[in-house]
Every structure is written in C-alpha cells, then in structure tokens.
Computed example of a mutant assay.
Amino acid sequence: MQILLDANLSYRLVKKLADIFSDCLHVTRTGLPIPAEDIAIWQWARMNNQIIITNDDYYNLANTYGFPPKVVLLRMGNQSSASVFETLQKHIDDLQKLNESDEYGMLELF
C-alpha cells in the first residue's frame, strides 16, 4: 500500500509509519510546489498510485473525478502526530480494505 501524507500532517509521521506502511511519502517530497494545491496533490497521487491521508476535505475532488486516488479523511480536528499515528495504526485493517476495494474510494476516520 502506497501512502501520501498531505501537507496538513507532519512529515515526521513518515518515519513513525515506516513499520506499518513501508511505502509512505510526505507531499513535500513529491516535487510539487510548496504549498501544493489540492488538485495537484490529487493528480500526483493518481499518477503514482498513492492513497492520500489528509485532514482536508477532498469530497469535491472525489465527486468530480472519482477514484483513484483513494482518500483517507481524518476527522479528528487538530491532533498531535502521536494521535494521528495511533488512529492509523488502530485502523490498519480498514485501510487495507480500502486499498483492496474496487467499490470504495474514501475512508473517514474519527
């Protein structure tokens, strides 16, 4: 599973998530402009087969363009990196199901 962390998440999560997601990348390492627009992140993730993990609302892009890419929306408000890590770790099975699904393109975690 290839994961792309959006700019609103700490780049430090890449190292923390390495044991769970061996292919994890922060948007600042994609070569996109900083800050990158959501549509540019969406297109980059689509071309590179990445699942976007974000706090941003990507519903409009999902409704307009469909998937891929698939998106994990973190509906937790502003949380520490440790809290985000724990949430992703707790939902690893859900993330795997999203990755394998041909029917679903978005997962919301609270």
Rank of each mutant, 00 (worst) to 15 (best):
Q2I: 00
Q2C: 03
I3R: 01
L4P: 04
L5G: 01
L5K: 04
D6N: 09
A7S: 12
A7H: 12
L9H: 07
S10M: 03
Y11Q: 11
R12S: 09
R12E: 07
V14I: 09
K15H: 14
K16F: 07
K16Y: 10
I20A: 03
I20N: 02
S22F: 11
D23R: 05
D23H: 07
D23G: 01
C24T: 15
C24G: 11
L25K: 15
L25S: 05
H26Q: 02
V27K: 01
T28L: 13
T28I: 12
T30A: 08
T30P: 10
G31L: 08
G31D: 10
P33D: 12
P33W: 13
P35T: 08
P35L: 04
D38Q: 05
D38K: 07
I39W: 06
A40K: 05
A40P: 03
I41D: 02
I41M: 03
W42A: 04
W42C: 04
W42H: 03
Q43N: 15
W44G: 01
W44T: 01
R46N: 12
M47D: 15
M47F: 10
M47W: 04
M47S: 11
N48L: 01
N49Y: 09
I51Y: 06
I52T: 05
N55L: 15
D56V: 06
D57T: 00
Y58R: 07
Y59A: 10
Y59G: 00
L61T: 04
T64Y: 09
T64D: 11
G66W: 06
F67G: 09
P68Y: 11
P68K: 08
P69H: 10
P69E: 06
P69F: 09
P69I: 07
K70M: 00
V71R: 08
V71Y: 07
V72L: 11
V72D: 06
L73G: 03
L73N: 07
L73D: 02
R75K: 11
R75E: 01
M76I: 15
G77Q: 14
G77M: 12
N78D: 12
N78R: 06
Q79C: 11
Q79K: 15
S80Y: 01
S80N: 00
A82I: 12
S83N: 15
S83M: 13
S83H: 14
V84R: 04
E86T: 06
E86N: 13
T87A: 13
T87M: 15
L88Q: 02
L88F: 03
K90S: 14
K90V: 08
K90W: 10
D94T: 00
L95G: 05
L95R: 04
Q96M: 09
K97D: 13
K97V: 13
N99V: 02
E100T: 06
D102W: 00
D102F: 06
E103R: 12
Y104F: 13
Y104H: 12
Y104K: 13
G105A: 08
G105C: 05
M106Y: 09
M106N: 07
L107R: 08
E108N: 06
E108H: 04
L109G: 11
F110Y: 11
